[in-house]
Design a protein around this nucleic acid. Structure first.
Lengths: 230, 230
DNA sequence: TTTTATTATTAGGATACCCTAACAATTTGT
DNA sequence: ACAAATTGTTAGGGTATCCTAATAATAAAA
């Protein structure tokens, strides 16, 4: 909890690095992201360099070292696990979970995180569909993603569910959705974010937004728009 | 989460005030309690005075104002609710809960606390038998206490349970313990902290440590040692 | 290519927290 | 009552964060 600030810097560097894959993470970007001024950020960046948590220079910007990455990915992990816990176990809405998780992610207890992660059934994605790194900091394979992150027209294959849950598996079998089924997204109903699908027998299936978050798929078309849309 | 330090000072002033009812809460006491040096504490005390959260002078020491008390009791409330949640819902042991609750108590979300408090069934005491202030900061009536806080020989009357829980009520009826029963503590079994009681019919009852925490009683003897022992 | 706009960086200052050293004020014990 | 021990306070520093203002370095645009 003392490393609050430091953790937030490392997380920000990680996040900006992911968003801006080609671009460098500069001091000004970070300052805007963290609602601080460039000199403040620069000062901290220098101290992070001294601690061996990042490398920094004008041309490449800030890049996490192995040590810095491990801290950053762990904060991301905690954040996404708490978001999932708040959403699924404590009935918070999507819009509420982020702010509370911003605080909870800094609570330093591996045992606590392990416990709630296990209660949730070791999910691979949080309620927003973002991947949850495992304990070793490894993200679930990236072309595997929740169905909820689809665009209209996408043809995809069912690869699994985001976490263990018998009720959900029963729901799927009621909808006649099984592993390796190939589905086409016919319509995304904006009212409640539910999705209308077509299965291989050309049958129409409507799946709820909640279920779509838990159902993991992969696009079948090589250049599917889903990849660029998310 | 920014008021981390401030919250800890106010909590400490509250706690030392409770422990040392007749004595003043001096700068040195606080420094020892918080593992800081007196000048550091004094500096902060002055700032708390400026903010109107405490009154302070050499002879009376630090005394919380209404505003300061409200913050302090709220932190105590959060701490005890989290301890209870960690113990009961996440299966942490007594010895583990305190340290984690020290961090969680500073997470600022009334909705989160309300939620877990309600999931727990609005308990009046935490796993250590400490009273949980209600939302308005009022502590449960103090002569009502968990049976677990008894000394050998104590004669007491059953007043209720610390929180709603059907399984527990069934357990009590199995043991033939009912509201307003008068019980005598015959023995506290040090091995597992379970308690051997005698009811009015001179029947011997053994109650587990866990149940003893949830069963609320009041001493019948005016000068019962329970009061001074806790 | 030169002017303009955008970063990066340095200088200097403010506040929050913590500390040691030195001294003042109070108790305490005898 | 008076020396000894225990607080309370002031003075003076140190580090971490954060800021504004000014300057250097770069990139973008005309």
């Amino acid at each position: 909890m003392n490393s609050f600030k430091e953790e937030n810097y490392l997380k920000a560097i990680y996040q900006l690095g992911v968003i801006d894959k080609e671009n460098v993470v500069g001091a000004t970007d970070l300052a805007n992201w963290l609602a601080l001024k460039p000199p403040t950020v620069l000062e901290k960046l220098n101290s992070l360099v001294t601690k061996g948590l990042i490398n920094y220079n004008k041309t490449d910007g800030a890049i996490l070292t192995k040590k810095g990455y491990e801290i950053a990915i762990n904060i991301v992990r905690r954040h996404r696990i708490w978001e999932t816990y708040l959403y699924r176990q404590l009935n918070f809405s999507w819009s509420e979970v982020h702010e509370i998780a911003e605080q909870l992610e800094h609570v330093n207890s591996d045992k606590l995180i392990d416990k709630i992660y296990s209660i949730l059934g070791n999910p691979e994605f949080d309620p927003h569909g973002d991947p949850i790194p495992n304990k070793r900091g490894v993200l679930p394979k990236s072309d595997r993603r929740p169905l909820s992150r689809s665009v209209k027209g996408c043809k995809c294959v069912v690869l699994g569910v985001s976490h263990d849950n018998e009720a959900f598996l029963n729901y799927l079998s009621d909808l006649k959705i099984a592993l390796n089924d190939k589905l086409t997204v016919e319509q995304i109903i904006s009212y409640d974010e539910s999705i209308r699908l077509l299965n291989q027998k050309k049958e129409s299936i409507i799946i709820s937004a909640k279920a779509a978050e838990q159902l993991l798929v992969a696009c079948l078309k090589p250049n599917c728009e889903c990849k660029t849309a998310n």
